[in-house]
Each structure stands twice: as structure tokens, then as C-alpha cells.
Simulated assay, not measured.
Amino acid sequence: MPKTAEELFAFLDSLDIAHKTKAHAPVFTVSESASLRDEIPGGHTKNLFVKDKKDQFFVITVEENASVDLKTVHKVIGASSRVSFGNPEKMLEFLGVVPGSVTVFGALNDTDNNVTFVLDEDLMREEVINGHPLSNDATTSIGRDDLIRFLEATGHTPLVLKVTG
């Protein structure tokens, strides 16, 4: 059973990581979430759940307006081949989320380390990073260094790479 937002918040609290969450109507795309920018400061994210031909899975987290070239990003992230989007069943199995809710916080559900988390260098220049707390009806804000600490505490060593054009 996937962990809930409340379990995510308790995990962050156990690590003494400050976080703030704002509930809002469900958003499925970056354009739908644009209206929240004035209410929630910091870097807003777009998350891509992708896989290569050897079934290595990745979550690539970038600034919401950044573009990722799916034809070449495999060379940067260490995939064995060009990547394609992972299917919803694996997304739910590994991250505990459904399409429209992919988030770096899904690492909490990836207890078997099936997914490599990639954070874009440009995004990591932001002091505060925003992501969905395992569902797309809220946004959780966390410090960039605390995001790294969170990922490491879940057993993931994130790759901070230049993945945007």
C-alpha cells in the first residue's frame, strides 16, 4: 500500500526537515498549476517518469518551464538507451502515484530502489523546491538541501545533472 501525504510529512518531521504544504484543486499539467505561482514561492517542478530498454527507471525533476530532450537525455543520466515514458502500473508500483502526480517525494515509496532520481542543476539553484506530496491536490515546499537529505534518507543518492536545454 503506497504511503500517504501524512506519512510523508511524518517522515520529513522525523528528519527535522522544515516543510510547508498548500492544498489546492487537483492539477494535472504545468499550465494548470500556473495560477498557484503567486501563492507558493520557490522553484516549481515538472517530473518525468521514464525508462530505458533495460527497464531502468528514472524520475527526472526539472523546473516547470524547462524542456528535456528525450532523444538525448539518456546520455546525461546514464541510461542504456533512449528513454520512453514509464507505464502507469510501474509508476504506481514504484512511486505509489498515478499519472499527473509524479513527484520526487515518490522516493518514499520506492523501498526497493527501482528508480534513479535525477535533479536538474538549474532547478537546484532555487532555495526552495516545490513538489506534489504524493497527490496532485497539494504542493509541498522544501529547502533544496533538505530535498537531497530526504532522498538520501529514503536510500536514494540523487544525481544532480544538467538535463535541460
Rank of each mutant, 00 (worst) to 15 (best):
K71L: 15
F49C: 11
P133E: 09
S35M: 07
A153C: 01
G100D: 04
E121L: 06
V73E: 08
T45K: 01
E7Q: 10
L48D: 13
H156Y: 10
D146N: 06
L95H: 07
N65G: 06
V27T: 09
E63Y: 14
R125I: 01
T4E: 08
S141T: 13
F28Y: 06
D145R: 10
E7N: 00
A138D: 15
M1C: 04
T140K: 13
I77P: 14
T45C: 09
V102W: 06
L92S: 07
L70N: 05
S135K: 06
S81D: 12
E6N: 11
D55A: 15
V104H: 10
G143H: 03
N65E: 11
H74I: 03
D16M: 01
N109D: 11
V68W: 04
L147G: 09
S31P: 00
V76D: 05
F58M: 08
E32A: 02
S67H: 10
F85K: 12
F94Y: 15
T154L: 08
G42S: 12
L134H: 11
A5T: 05
K54C: 04
I40S: 10
D122L: 05
L48I: 08
S31V: 03
D137S: 04
A5K: 01
M91I: 07
L123N: 08
G143K: 04
E93M: 06
D112C: 05
A5L: 02
A18F: 14
I142P: 15
